[in-house]
Design a protein around this nucleic acid. Structure first.
Length: 550
RNA sequence: GCGUGAGUAGCUCAGCAGGAUAGAGCGUCCCUCUCCUAAAGGGAAGGUCGCGGGUUCGAAUCCCGCCUCGCGCACCA
């Protein structure tokens, strides 16, 4: 029995109770779903609900009174062995070992599908993340989003959503010009321009471009040549890094295309027609304050060039035209001022601002000896995705970036990483999975097979605990999707790994010495394999491998 | 100044979609491998959940105020 199943049973018991006139609760006060939680204290049963406390006020009845009414009905739920009223009105529910144990079999039979859902079926999501300018390699901030974004995409997919991973390739504007000038300077053997980029990669790309085009400095517009070839090389390198990181985008969208096909121009005309643009100081402004922004924004600069936001409005329109219901943007905290602008743009287009959802991720800082290190692209002192992967590997890099809430700043201590220490919990989870595989191998070698299954044999306290946390997994996925928080998956895997290790320590799957194989052994193998499956499924959602041996 | 995120164990962080005795990893100190992987497990120590009010049966969690830190507040992208 999973908490969701129990929740559903309690909900219908509650409804039945109201229908029968035992409880007078206004319909609007009835929750769609009664929440059940795992009590911290095992003396409080397997699951508990505070529904009686919540209904006390709207029903105008003391909570314990409501609890009493519900107790009789809850006790009749198949699989429920005991219901107790505790404290101010908690309902503590104990489940039959057999009913709880059935889950092990259900998980093994569901296989890779366990935990997935169809709650988001039919929703088309455009998830845009990383979108780093092709003026340099992906730094740590982008790497964090690559890990979190890709994982979020996988979690959405587990809930049935149709997800497109998209990378907005910013190949238009002055950053790119600076990049081109930096390449040109390098090729000429000159120092990097004051507002340009430094770092070894500039030299490497400049050399590569020169090698492929020996006469490039004699071209009519060498800077333009370096721009086009350099961006191409840089972008190929970025794609390669992402690919090795396990992140492959469905769409790499070129900002330039919005200008080339006239989409931006057309859109600006449309906005003018709607009366949302006005001219001031030689520029064209979007009246974004009318749509919740804190100030109006320039869309066409007084020099006649489009401002960045112009492309972004057109891009949003483009996404909607491609049929996406929800456009999610994952931005760094240094861009959070952009949220109101994007929503205002959608609003101005006559679209629903709720189609735009912006997720803000806090910064990743480098720390050395407890002191923050300043990263500078210009000075070339950035730590890149490749650097991180070189030191800790893809699994540890992805896991350690995905296990934190995006709301938290994270500090990465290079000394700790270079020590290759076991401080990273990814090993804890992966080791648990490897252990399940070792146990399965030993079981096979000693003739323990999943022939029989006796759910009632899973009686040990650690088995009850393990089953409970495995049962929580689908709910954790649903919440991770609903709140756009992949770290919840990682954290729960750590809980499952802990429960598994404790179970492993006291409950053997294979018999000792020449003891006979019993149904207890066989049933425990089901539980072992169920755990293996859930860990593998969860690690998969994080883009981390589930090794069979370590 | 305005906006926004954070402040929880020595360190790094969960918990915040109100619940019962506030958790995990790492670090420190004990203990457990003649039998499934000790990258593990058990135990100990370690907390004014930034501070002050409020809401209620109940607040780390919600509301208000304050303090500290990060990040924004362009005709840059």
């Amino acid at each position: 029995m999973t908490p969701e199943e129990l929740s559903a049973a309690i909900t219908s018991a509650l409804t039945a109770s109201v229908d029968a006139g035992e409880l007078a609760v206004p319909a609007e006060a009835l929750p769609k779903e009664v929440r059940v939680e795992r009590p911290k204290n095992r003396e409080h049963g397997d699951w508990a609900t505070n529904i009686a406390l919540q209904l006390a006020k709207p029903a105008g009845v003391p909570p314990r009174k409501i609890a009493e009414v519900l107790t009789a009905r809850l006790a009749e739920i198949p699989g429920v062995s005991r219901v107790e009223i505790a404290g101010p009105g908690f309902l503590n529910i104990t489940v039959d070992a057999a009913a709880a144990g059935e889950l092990a079999k259900a998980i093994v039979e569901a296989g890779t599908a366990f935990g997935s859902n169809t709650a988001m079926a039919g929703t088309r999501i455009n998830l845009e993340f990383v979108s780093a300018n092709p003026t340099g390699p992906i730094h740590l901030g982008g790497t964090r989003w690559a890990a979190v974004g890709d994982s979020l995409a996988r979690i959405f997919q587990s809930q049935g959503a149709d997800v497109t991973r998209e990378y907005y390739f910013n190949d238009h504007g002055i950053q790119i010009d600076r990049f081109a000038r930096s390449l040109l300077a390098s090729a000429k053997g000159e120092p990097a321009p004051e507002d340009g980029y430094g770092g070894d990669y500039i030299t490497e790309i400049a050399d590569a471009v020169t090698a492929a085009h020996p006469d490039i400095l004699a071209a009519a517009d060498p800077q333009e040549e370096f721009r086009s070839h350099g961006v191409e090389l840089m972008f190929a390198a970025i794609k390669e890094s992402l690919h090795e990181f396990g992140v492959d985008f469905d769409v790499y969208f070129h900002e330039n295309s919005l200008f080339e096909d006239g989409a931006v121009e057309k859109l600006l005309e449309q906005l003018k027609g709607l009366g949302h643009l006005y001219a001031k100081d030689g520029a064209w402004w979007l009246k974004s304050t009318a749509f919740g922004d804190d100030k109006d924004r320039v869309v066409i600069k007084s020099d006649g060039h489009a401002a960045y936001i112009a492309g972004d409005i057109a891009y949003f329109k483009n996404k909607r035209d491609r049929g996406f219901d929800l456009c999610i943007y994952m931005l760094g905290a240094d861009h959070h001022g952009y949220v109101a602008r994007l929503k205002a743009a959608a609003d101005a287009l006559g679209d629903d601002a709720d189609r735009v959802e912006v997720l803000i991720g806090q910064m990743v800082n480098l720390v050395k000896d407890g002191v923050p290190l300043r990263m500078s692209k210009r000075a070339g002192t950035v730590v890149t995705m490749e650097d991180l992967v070189d030191v800790v590997g893809t699994d540890a890099a992805r896991y350690s970036l995905a296990r934190f809430s995006s709301d938290s700043n994270i500090d990465i201590d290079l000394d700790v990483l270079t020590k290759r220490s076991n401080e990273n919990p990814v090993f804890y989870v992966q080791y648990a999975h490897a252990r399940t595989c070792a146990v399965a191998r030993n079981a096979a070698a000693t003739g323990v097979e999943r022939t029989a299954f006796d759910a009632a044999a899973l009686t040990h306290a650690t088995e009850s605990e393990l089953l409970a946390v495995l049962g929580q997994y689908p709910g954790v996925l649903a919440q991770a999707a609903a709140y756009r928080e992949p770290h919840r998956v990682a954290r729960h895997l750590e809980v499952i790994a802990g429960a598994y290790h404790r179970w492993y320590d006291v409950c053997r799957v294979t018999p000792l010495g020449d003891e006979p194989v019993t149904d207890v052994n066989r049933t425990r193998l089901w539980l072992n394999d169920a755990t293996s499956q859930v860990l593998a499924n969860g690690l998969g959602l994080l883009g981390v491998t589930a090794p069979e041996r370590m």
